[in-house]
Design a protein around this nucleic acid. Structure first.
Length: 255
DNA sequence: ATGGCCCACATGGTGGGA
């Protein structure tokens, strides 16, 4: 089973990229963030035609998440039952015996801002929910845009980013606490090339200079980590015309 | 020099992203 997370930054704009990518990459489950579409505008027919069943939870202009799957999607839950949130950032579903959560963690905007406070509170509540889901599902995976770079090697210039949004100590501590529930970063289960990032700013030719952050992650329960045989970031889409600023992250699970 | 770019909503410029 191949599983993917990809922040597409508007599914309306990026649908053709998604379909093109799926055609070249026959994967089983795709967690998508920032669809920026209300549910009535979701491109369900196009994705069904590509061979995917879909669960989605969107809103106007901002946020919005979806899970695509070749296998049947069961027990869909929208939002965190432990946190009231008008923003559509979370979607859970069971596929092929695996419990998935698709997560779009708040950006936080600036350390110390109201949005930063919301980000940390949101992450705290996420941990409560994930603990409950993991207690109920041995095979558990949470994929998404975490908007947090876990370590210095996940940041193109750690000195420049130290203490700033996406790399502040409280954010990194929140991610560590989530992972302390027993989750492994699929990407770090394997030897990886240096300077691997999943997001690059649109400005300043950041992609060409590889000035990026690794903020999109696939976290796996112990049982799934033992099944995981590979994980990589697919930089190719970022070279396409009018790309998302995020690249897909792909993990392979043995049967 | 703290912005530059991209998207949505709008139809000029603002809010948000990361």
């Amino acid at each position: 089973m191949k599983i993917v997370t990809w922040n597409v930054n508007s599914l309306k704009v990026r649908l053709s990229h998604l379909l093109q990518w799926l055609e070249a990459n026959p994967v089983d489950v795709v967690c998508i963030q920032e669809t920026k579409l209300t549910d009535d505008k979701f491109p369900l027919a196009e994705l069904n035609a590509a061979g995917y069943q879909v669960a989605f939870s969107g809103q106007k202009t901002y946020n919005g998440v979806a899970i695509l799957s070749k296998l049947p999607i069961e027990d869909v839950v929208r939002n965190n039952p432990h946190y009231e949130d008008l923003q559509q950032r979370l979607l859970a579903a069971t596929i092929g015996g695996v419990r998935f959560i698709c997560a779009y963690v708040p950006n936080g905007q600036e350390v110390g801002s109201d949005k930063y406070t919301y980000k940390l509170a949101w992450l705290d509540a996420l941990r409560t929910w994930v603990a409950a889901e993991m207690a109920a599902h041995e095979q558990f995976a949470i994929l998404g845009d975490y908007n947090i770079a876990p370590e210095a090697r996940d940041v193109h210039d750690p000195a420049e980013w130290e203490g700033r949004i996406h790399f502040s100590l409280p954010e990194r501590a929140a991610l560590q606490e989530l992972m302390a529930l027993g989750l492994s970063d699929a990407f770090r289960l394997f030897e990886q090339p240096e300077k691997q990032y999943s997001w690059w700013d649109y400005r300043q030719m950041a992609f060409r200079r590889n000035r990026g952050l690794r903020i999109d992650h696939i976290l796996l329960s112990k049982t799934l980590a033992n099944r995981c045989t590979a994980c990589h970031i697919d930089r190719e889409t970022r070279k396409w015309e009018q790309p998302s600023d995020h690249a897909p992250v792909v993990a392979t699970l043995a049967d």
